[in-house]
Design a protein around this nucleic acid. Structure first.
Length: 549
RNA sequence: GCCCCGGUAGCUCAGCUGGAUAGAGCAACGGAUUUCUAAUCCGUAGGUCACAGGUUCGAAUCCUGUCCGGGGUACCA
């Protein structure tokens, strides 16, 4: 069982469930098909359950009749919530203000640990970006990088020991073409007429590398000199690392595809599949008998050229990750993997590997608009907008927020021309502003109020105050949801609600009032708790929480 | 061909493990500033939740079909 700091809020739901269960027990009813939902609209209590609506069929009574019965059932938690029934048959829970104010104390005492799970002794591996070093990172990779980083943060927050992993192909055809392209650029620079290879890389970043090679190694290199491959990979990879570093993303492990050729893992996969009669040769290629496993058409594992397709090394790589013993394996993939990752999972199953603990997060692509036109991005054709270019225009907080403003499953339209304009309307400022306001207020408070009283939380009874406290109390259960969905956007949405509730409270009520030091203190504590939640949430998103703006 | 995603206010999108009156930002209009930071707040206006069936006490949410838009994919990864 997971122990959770800030768990009182989860106890709230448990108490409500216990109450309903007690009603069922007392009336000797066996039933478990109910839910308890939070109410955002006012008028029907803080939470409500559909239990009476669901029971109507079973008990052959009207829902409202059952709901009224339940609401009149003896309530051992009456100091925490009271009950009512409403049409057509909801059971409503009205939580006492006191409960929320208790949570405020807890937030303040636990501070940066509020809502955080203590160490679980569980490990997770998050693989993301995994872009081959054939060119600079584009805004498309940016989405994946930010998403993966935030997912990692969410897991860390939830008690996992997280390994961030970058996997790349240093051995395949693309790298060979890249080296040939680099040689062609090199040759052109020293006046030789060498054609670009078919489907070669034409980006200007290669010109710079070729130039460097001329400068460092002279003009006499042959086309097959390993320097073209090695230096290109090294240069581009170091560029990639710098870019990631500049938006605050670091990896723990870099794994090269070549490893699995060298250590025989790929041969072993092929051997095992062959032994199990799950592969065969046709037209000079090796095929994976996916059709016999009821998964569509057979897929190629090794091309007739002798080179494996993406699937084969990826199966070997995932088998390796599984063997490393992680409790959770997360793959962040772009939409281009939608078709292929099921083959990889299937391959792993064929190797008798456990796969239940693999979670795949697929995100849709970023489409770029340049001069009003949608641009199809291709690294090879040098038709892209780099993450570095983006960074020149926008600060990292904005970039991070921009990429998670849409759910992973939605396409993200990116209009570079408008990026800066839009950034000024970016909600991230709204959150940061709330935090800066609080910071300033806390400073002022110490200057203007010197009285040292005991804190009397029960002075907080205004609607805006309770609404804010209630929202703050929901943070731990919100993080539970997020752990399940691995969708950072939900944190952002929650924080926007918190900021909004705070701005509203701030606008309607004066915190610092020397004439009423007791109330001032209670309100100050509410501000402190809000700041803690905002700071904690923003830290999971990797976004700064400036003290002043 | 096969697969994935989307269609909700003028625009950009939340809400989708079914719940009560569908929300927010931007844009528009009106108001609040000798301010604890106006990067804010309050108010007005704005809707056939693409369409049609189905499931049920109840559907934006689930199922089926259709239409429209975006994307992926075939021995590139």
């Amino acid at each position: 069982m997971v122990r959770c700091k800030g768990g009182k809020n989860m106890n709230l739901k448990k108490l409500m469930n216990d109450f309903l269960q007690d009603y069922l027990n007392q009336n000797k009813i066996k039933f478990s098909e109910w839910s308890i939902n939070i109410n955002n609209q006012v008028g029907f209590g803080d939470y409500s359950s559909n239990i009476a609506l669901k029971l109507a069929n079973v008990l052959k009574k009207t829902p409202i009749e059952i709901a009224k019965n339940i609401a009149n059932h003896p309530n051992v938690s009456e100091n925490i919530f009271s009950l009512s029934a409403s049409k057509p048959g909801f059971v409503n829970f009205h939580v006492s203000n006191n409960y929320y104010l208790e949570i405020l104390k807890q937030i303040i005492s636990e501070s940066e640990n509020f809502g955080k799970k203590i160490k679980l002794n569980k490990s997770a591996n998050v693989e993301f970006v995994s872009s081959n070093p054939t060119g600079p990172l584009t805004v498309g990779h940016g989405r994946q990088a930010i998403l993966g980083d935030m997912v990692s943060n969410i897991l860390t927050w939830s008690g996992y020991d997280v390994t961030r992993e970058y996997y790349y192909n240093d051995a395949g055809k693309q790298m060979r073409v890249l080296a040939e392209s680099c040689y062609a650029k090199y040759a052109q620079q020293i006046g030789k007429d060498v054609k670009m290879p078919e489907n070669g890389y034409v980006g200007t970043y290669l010109d710079e590398i070729a130039e460097k090679i001329v400068y460092k190694y002279g003009k006499d290199l042959e086309s097959d000199d390993p320097i073209f491959r090695d230096l290109t990979e090294k240069e581009i990879f170091s560029n990639i690392k710098n870019t990631l570093d500049s938006i605050g993303i670091k990896f723990d492990v870099f794994t090269k595809e070549g490893t699995f050729y060298k250590n025989g893992a790929i041969d072993n996969v092929l051997k095992t599949l062959e032994e199990k009669n799950l592969s065969y040769e046709k037209d000079g290629a090796v095929w994976f008998k996916t059709s016999s496993l009821d998964k569509g058409e057979d897929k190629v594992l090794v091309k007739s050229t002798g080179e494996p397709t993406y699937r084969l090394p990826d199966i070997a790589y995932h088998a390796d990750k599984i063997d490393r013993g992680f409790d959770l394996i997360v793959d962040i993939f772009g939409a281009d993997h939608i078709d292929t990752y099921p083959d990889v999972i299937l391959g792993l199953k064929c190797l008798d590997k456990k796969t239940d603990h693999i979670k795949v997060v697929i995100h849709q692509f970023v489409t770029i608009k340049k001069g009003g036109e949608v641009v199809k991005m291709s690294t090879r054709k040098a038709n892209f907008i780099t993450l570095d270019e983006l960074k020149e225009k926008l600060n990292p907080d904005i970039i991070r927020y921009f990429f998670i403003m849409r759910g992973a499953n939605s396409h993200l339209d990116f209009d570079l021309d408008l990026a800066k304009d839009e950034s000024e309307k970016n909600p991230v400022y709204y959150l940061q502003y709330a935090n800066a306001r609080i910071s300033n207020l806390l400073k002022r408070y110490d200057l203007e109020i010197s009285a040292k009283n005991d804190i009397n939380y029960s002075l907080l009874k205004e609607k805006d105050e309770i609404a804010l406290a209630k929202l703050l109390s929901e943070f731990p259960s919100k993080m539970e949801d997020v752990l399940h969905s691995l969708e950072p956007r939900k944190i952002a949405t929650y924080l926007e609600e918190v900021a909004s509730a705070y701005h509203k409270f701030y606008g309607n009520h004066k915190v610092i009032n020397p004439q009423n030091a007791d109330l001032s203190l209670a309100r100050k504590k509410l501000c402190e708790a809000t700041k803690i939640i905002l700071t904690n949430g923003l830290s999971i998103l990797g976004i700064s929480a400036p003290e002043r703006m």
